[in-house]
């Protein structure tokens, strides 16, 4: 189904995109609606615990000397960890850019979840493990600021999932298939639509928000250093969260994508096919083959 058809159907039935998503899933699979909603609710809870796991260690080790937390939360390779704490610490001391609390929190939480993932903690792949920080980062930051409750988050996550289904069917959701635009790009589009719904926007606002995010991240390559889900994936989750927020802001203001959302997805699919294999999760180009990227890769290989 197209995004336009889905938005029209939700509008005609007077339901949210999230509600439509769980209804369609129930119709297709025969799984009772309440069970599907329950599964999504469980994912929202895991997302919350991933964020607090990623940040919680900071609170534990703040009184201790600097660096203690970073060792505690580093990944198995030692390549990543501790950055969420830096951003969260700066917010806590009120030194973030003036008026930038929602964005700063989204960034901190997106980093937190992605760092938990790299450190072999529990996360929800949404849509993938490599892009698991964008949705919880933005959703939970907004919920904290706006006071949205758990059921609102469940509905927003369902709406995000519906957007992901359309992209998944027409483009794919793996870096190997279509580059990072299919992972962090899809995550940002899903998040943007969910944020719009959380803020009370219409189904049409949601799909345009998704289109803005896809346009903003179109062509993003997948070039992981040493083939690992760490560099640059973790920070791309944070920057993709910012794209999602900007996209939601535009859509909620009534801004419309000049290229219809479904045509944007078609363009994304075409771009995905045109991205050379070296930049599709094979670590044969981009950041993976910079002098530093190659050095890290050789060090990792030396460990095996």
């Amino acid at each position: 189904m197209t995004l336009t058809e889905l938005a029209q159907r939700a509008l005609a039935e007077g339901i949210s995109l999230g509600r439509l998503a769980v209804m369609l899933e129930s119709e297709e699979t025969g799984i009772p609606l309440a069970e599907i909603v329950g599964r999504v609710r469980e994912m929202v809870r895991v997302m919350k615990s991933s964020v607090s796991e990623g940040l919680g260690h900071m609170e534990d080790s703040t009184p201790v000397r600097p660096g203690v937390f970073e060792r505690a939360r580093r990944s198995r390779t030692g390549l990543s960890g501790g950055d969420a704490a830096k951003v969260a610490g700066r917010i806590a001391s009120g030194r973030n850019l003036p008026g930038n609390v929602l964005l700063a929190k989204s960034v901190a939480y997106a980093l937190a979840v992605s760092e938990v993932n790299a450190a072999m903690g529990k996360i929800v792949a949404a849509p993938t493990a490599g892009s698991c920080g964008v949705i919880p980062g933005t959703f939970l930051a907004l919920a904290e600021v706006s006071g949205a409750g758990e059921e609102d988050l469940v509905d927003a996550l369902s709406a995000a999932g519906l957007i992901g289904q359309v992209i998944g069917e027409r483009v794919g959701l793996s870096g190997a298939q279509a580059g990072c635009q299919a992972e962090c790009g899809s995550a940002a589009a899903m998040a943007a639509a969910g944020l719009v719904q959380l803020a009370g926007g219409s189904p049409e606002d949601c799909i345009h928000a998704a289109a803005f995010a896809l346009k903003g991240l179109m062509g993003l390559v997948c070039d992981p250093v040493a083939g690992l889900v760490e560099v640059p994936c973790i920070k791309r989750n944070a920057t993709s969260a910012a794209v999602a927020l900007a996209s939601a802001e535009m859509a909620l203001s009534g801004v419309r994508s000049r290229i219809p959302p479904d045509e944007v997805i078609s363009a994304m699919a075409q771009v995905g096919r045109m991205i050379p294999p070296a930049l599709r999760e094979t670590s044969q180009g981009g950041l993976a083959t910079t002098p530093t990227g190659l050095r890290v890769s050789h060090e990792m290989a030396g460990k095996t």
Partner: peptide, 21 residues
């Protein structure tokens, strides 16, 4: 592609193919 394929799995990171699989 099903909704519950796009959202999830709930898993231990860092990679759905290299860790969860």
């Amino acid at each position: 592609m099903r909704l519950l394929d796009v959202l999830g799995p709930v898993m231990i990171g860092p990679s759905s193919s290299h860790t969860a699989g």
